[in-house]
Every structure is written in C-alpha cells, then in structure tokens.
Simulated scan of single mutants.
Amino acid sequence: MASEITYAEVKFKNESNSLRTYSESPAASREKPIHHLSKPGTLMLLFISLMILLLLLAITFLVAFITYFQKYSQVLEEKIAKKNIIPSELNCVKDVSMMEVWSCCPKDWKPFGSYCYLIPTDTSSASWNMSEEKCSDKGAHLVVIHSKEEQDFITGTLRRNAAYFIGLWDTGHGQWRWVDQTPYNESATFWHQNEPNNDDEKCVMINYRYNIGWGWNDIRCSDKQNSICQMKKIHL
C-alpha cells in the first residue's frame, strides 16, 4: 500500500514538471519572433529619416544656389551696362587708381578729390535751410570743407562780390556740426578774424573781405545767400 502512494506522488510531480515546461515553451516561442522582426522595422525607419534629411539639404542648397546665381547675374549685368554706357548727363574720366572704372561728376559740377561741387553761376539766393534742401534734391548737401587745399579750390571759382552758405551750423552753445555728420575739427577751420562772434547767428557762409581774402563768417540762418553743393563722385 505504501508503494502505491509513492508512485502516485512521483507521477504527480512528473506531470507538474511537464505542465510547467509546456506552459513556458509557448511564451518563449512567441517572444523570439517579435524580437527578430523589430530589427528590419527600425532600420527602415532610420533609412527613411536619412533620405528625408538628404532631400531637405538638397532643396536648401538648390534654393541658395538659385538665389546667389540671380543676384550675381544682376550685378554682372549692371557692371556691363555701366561700362558700355556713359550717360551724357555725366562728365567722366578714367580713374587711374582703379582699373576699368570711370570717375564721374554730373554735368556743370566741378571735380576735386573724391567729390563734385556745384558752384552757382546765377545770383539766386535762399535761406540756409532752403539751400540745404535744394542740394538734397540733387542728391547732395551743402559743401563740407576739411582742408586748405579744398578751400582754395572752391574759392578759386567763386565771385568775390557774393557770399555762399556752407554746410556748417551751430547746434547750440557754439557746438558746430557739419551736415554730413563728419567731426568738426577746430584746427582745420577758416574763420575770419574775430569770427564767430554772435550767438544768434547759427549758420555759416564763406565770403571775401578786401585785403584779407576768403574766410568763414557766422550769419543768421534766415538770411538769403548763394550756396555751394557737394556730392561724392559717381563711379561706373
């Protein structure tokens, strides 16, 4: 009787072990295919992402190239047009300091250094503000003088019996300023003796004094005088 019980127990244990092994084996078999199938999907996703990135880079490069080519073509056309056509309204000479470049001033303007100067030939006069506005309409400004050579060139073309506004004015309390915002250098000024002499006179003209010569004189901005316009040379 004891042997039958022992046999039953052994048999039960064997059956339980076999059941455990059977129950575990399907899970293992299911996990393995899932694990192996995930690799091709990941590689495909990486490949697609890489291709999209390369496509975006190619499109960006193409757009940049087209934009650059258009701008380069426009600049090239402008250069060719400028070299082949010299407008009749300009007086031009070849600039020896720059190859293949024309240095030009508008008709009736006088060249000196890097600038062109419009010296009035009539007796028309206007206030300082109106004179500056007239110069601005021509793409210029009232003359700015920074050297004795420039002053001598300008005064060599002026009438001694006339006075001319220049682009210098007092912003307040003797703070003189040029219209082109260049610094006011007291060591390069050409005031007549005892000038400037009046706080109410905020603008400056250049005039000739007998036995003294040309110089600067402060004057009321509302007074009417002739004027000299100045602009940078045009390069073609």
Rank of each mutant, 00 (worst) to 15 (best):
E4S: 09
V10N: 06
K11I: 03
S16D: 06
T21L: 15
A27E: 08
A27F: 15
A28E: 13
P33A: 09
P33L: 08
L37T: 07
L37R: 11
G41F: 11
T42M: 03
L50H: 05
L56R: 02
I59F: 12
F65L: 12
I66H: 06
Y68S: 05
Q74G: 03
P87F: 08
P87L: 10
S88A: 11
C92G: 01
K94D: 11
C104V: 08
P106A: 00
P106S: 01
K107E: 02
K107A: 00
K107I: 01
F112E: 02
G113D: 03
G113L: 10
S114E: 14
P120Y: 01
C135I: 03
A140G: 03
H141G: 05
L142D: 01
E150T: 08
I154N: 02
R160C: 04
N161K: 04
N161Q: 01
T171C: 05
G174C: 04
G174L: 02
W178F: 01
P183V: 05
S187W: 05
W191T: 15
H192K: 14
Q193S: 11
N198Y: 04
D199A: 13
D199W: 13
K202R: 04
K202I: 07
N207A: 09
Y208L: 07
Y208A: 06
R209T: 08
R209W: 14
G213E: 07
W216Q: 07
N217G: 05
N217Q: 13
I219S: 11
D223L: 11
D223G: 09
S227P: 01
M231Y: 07
